[in-house]
Amino acid sequence: MEVITRDIISVSLVLFSVIDILGSIPIIISMKKKGIKIESKKASIAACLIMILFLYAGEEILKLFHVDLASFAVAGSIIIFLIGIEMILGIHLFREEPDSKSSSIVPIAFPLIAGAGTLTTILSLKSEFNNINIFLGIIINILLVFLVLHFSDFIERKLGNSGAEVLRKVFGIILLAISIRLFKENIYG
């Protein structure tokens, strides 16, 4: 039981770092200022469905391209490493602020929450954790995403810009360490 709980916590923290919903608060606030209506419930459900679909069908998609899970985990570790660098240095390698005003699902659920980094991480985690632990980690994170989206104005006021930036950098360092571990564990297949 202790190992299962520890695995769920580990998966949840990894996904929390990659999704970086707290670090996305400035983007969310900016979208609101542009008149984009953010529907917390719809965006959270859509992101959850994308992540769960990729958890269970992602390997089959890889098989279509003749890519094994260890190779994908190594590639994923490189992406996670770059996301960590992005978070620490404050540069934007993968995300740009969305321009669309048509829907909050497309820019929020995908690619902001369930983007390339998140989907890569989910498949990379499969090399180390059971699907049920990853599934529960996804659910925990979607609940956190929903709360952050729903209370984004309040959180932004309480954290302030510097508080959000500190969290972003701390989770960036954690991601770097995780990416190096994933790389070492999967490099030889």
Rank of each mutant, 00 (worst) to 15 (best):
V148E: 09
L93F: 15
L167V: 11
L53M: 15
I4G: 12
G90S: 12
K32R: 15
S103V: 01
V14Y: 07
S152Q: 07
G35E: 10
A73R: 12
L64F: 11
H66L: 09
Y56D: 04
G90N: 14
I113M: 10
K158I: 04
I155K: 06
M1L: 04
V166A: 03
F183N: 09
I50Y: 01
L159I: 00
L123F: 03
L143R: 06
D153Y: 03
R157K: 14
S152A: 09
L89F: 15
F94M: 10
I21F: 09
H66V: 03
I25P: 09
F16G: 05
L53I: 13
I134H: 09
K101D: 12
S104Q: 07
Y56Q: 07
I25N: 08
L123Y: 02
S100D: 13
I139E: 13
S102I: 09
D68C: 12
H150S: 13
F81K: 05
I28C: 06
I122A: 00
T5H: 14
I45A: 00
L62Y: 07
E86L: 03
E128Q: 06
L144Y: 03
A114Y: 11
V11C: 13
F54A: 12
R181N: 10
I142M: 15
I19T: 01
A46Q: 10
Y56M: 02
I19E: 05
S40M: 06
P98A: 09
V166Q: 02
L159W: 06
I83H: 03
G35I: 00
A46D: 11
F65S: 10
S100R: 14
F183G: 07
D7M: 13
A177K: 07
S124I: 06
N186D: 14
I21S: 04
L55A: 02
K37P: 11
V14F: 08
K169E: 08
F171N: 01
G172N: 01
E60F: 14
G58W: 01
